[in-house]
Simulated assay, not measured.
Amino acid sequence: MSRTVTLVLVDDAGRPLGALPPFEVPDPWWQQVASIVDGARRRYGVDVAVLRLLDADRPHPPGGHVRYLAQLTGAPAGPGAAGGVPLEPATVDLAPHLLRQPWAQVGGPARSVAWAIDELRRLGRPVTAVAQQRTWNLSAIWRLDTPEGPAWLKQLPPFAHQEPTVLTWLATGAGVEAGPVVLAVGEEGRLLLEDVPGEDLYGVGEEARAGIAAAHHSVQLRSVGAVDRLVAAGVPDLRGVALARWVRERLAGHDVSVAAGLLGGLDERVRRLRDCGLPDTLVHGDLHPGNARGGDARRVVIDWADAFVGHPGFDILRLTEGLDAPAAARLVAEWADRWRADVPGCQPHRAVDLLRPVAPLRLAAVYAMFLAGIEPSEHPYHVHDVPAALAQAAAEARR
């Protein structure tokens, strides 16, 4: 599957210039923009910074025909042309929006990259090349090459403010290499990270996931004594009944009828969950294999923007998604054995059974939080996720 892309261009002052002719890019995921920037340069000889999604011909990703707003960089161009390429007329709403992220605004990418270049220069690492990788409502990411290897600029929305705090704690309190090295933290959600060599581990099987789970257990065990400090530093507190309250608040205004029974009994369910005796820990919040990076010798968990303090069972349930039932059961059994060894008398299997419908219910609340914090043009990224997660939660509760 691929995408067809139309770039509506603006100049450095935000004035509309017109649209480049549509072109195809090989990757279908709307937030991935490296191929878009490269395609505009190769096909039309223009350099651009992709700012934000405008619209698409389908209700949700991936694929289809997608329009983006992009800022022309480099030499200025007059209306109707960009680097000698005739532009097509384009209708686009350029009105500001209160929920627009800094990197989605004209000049935003340049300001963020300039900050990162200055920080790397301060560290004695001159930047030799910059490449925009991703932009959407959850993050913007650039790769910055230096003689010492690449660094990564990540910019986050306010509802993901906890990632720098978590990464800093991982570097000092976890006792293991559990996350990317933080090089600098800046304003407007900017975060400069050291490169983690290797590949994102999408699609790996049981053996690799077992290794991720074992290493992650060490992190969670070390975090037990630090949860109050993490909460005080701004990491979301979803311990016990606070989880039920947070879920209901985020889902207010959404149609939750399919999961009404589960929501009605959520306080009692989390009380029973606490009776299982597992301690509250640092939870990654989205521990699928693609959020681990590396190879056979070294794996690092990345993307801690969804982290919170709460029940450790959330992460093992996410990590086992997509496996066949016997493989998932084996990983859960190994997870349970580790917790029973470290916390004698606890009931991990009972806890996981209680948590199975709560995990997708929490995800529905997460997606609802995203929708409440982003501008309407980017709602297609998440609007269908809320009912889908609610339906999954209801199905799990009936089992």
Rank of each mutant, 00 (worst) to 15 (best):
L138S: 13
S139L: 04
W142F: 15
W142S: 07
R143A: 13
R143Q: 15
L144Y: 03
P147C: 11
G149L: 07
P150A: 12
P150I: 07
W152N: 06
K154M: 06
P158H: 13
P158Q: 11
P158Y: 13
P158G: 08
A160R: 06
A160W: 00
Q162G: 10
Q162C: 12
P164W: 02
P164S: 00
P164Q: 01
V166L: 08
V166P: 02
L167V: 02
T168W: 01
T168S: 13
W169Y: 07
L170A: 04
A171M: 10
T172H: 14
T172D: 15
V176W: 04
V176R: 09
E177K: 06
A178P: 03
A178D: 02
G179S: 05
V181L: 14
L183I: 06
A184N: 09
A184K: 07
V185K: 01
V185W: 02
V185T: 15
G186F: 00
G186R: 01
E187N: 12
E187C: 10
R190M: 11
E194R: 14
E194Q: 14
D195Y: 11
V196H: 02
V196A: 06
P197S: 09
G198S: 08
E199H: 13
D200F: 15
D200C: 15
Y202C: 13
Y202K: 15
G203M: 06
G203K: 04
G203Q: 02
V204P: 08
V204Q: 12
V204N: 11
G205T: 04
G205I: 07
E207I: 09
E207M: 09
A210Q: 12
A213I: 02
A214S: 12
A214H: 13
A215R: 13
A215D: 14
S218P: 06
V219I: 08
Q220I: 01
L221Y: 08
R222W: 00
R222G: 14
S223E: 01
G225Y: 05
G225C: 13
A226M: 12
A226W: 08
A226R: 15
A226V: 09
D228W: 05
V231Y: 04
A232W: 08
A233G: 09
G234P: 10
D237L: 12
G240E: 03
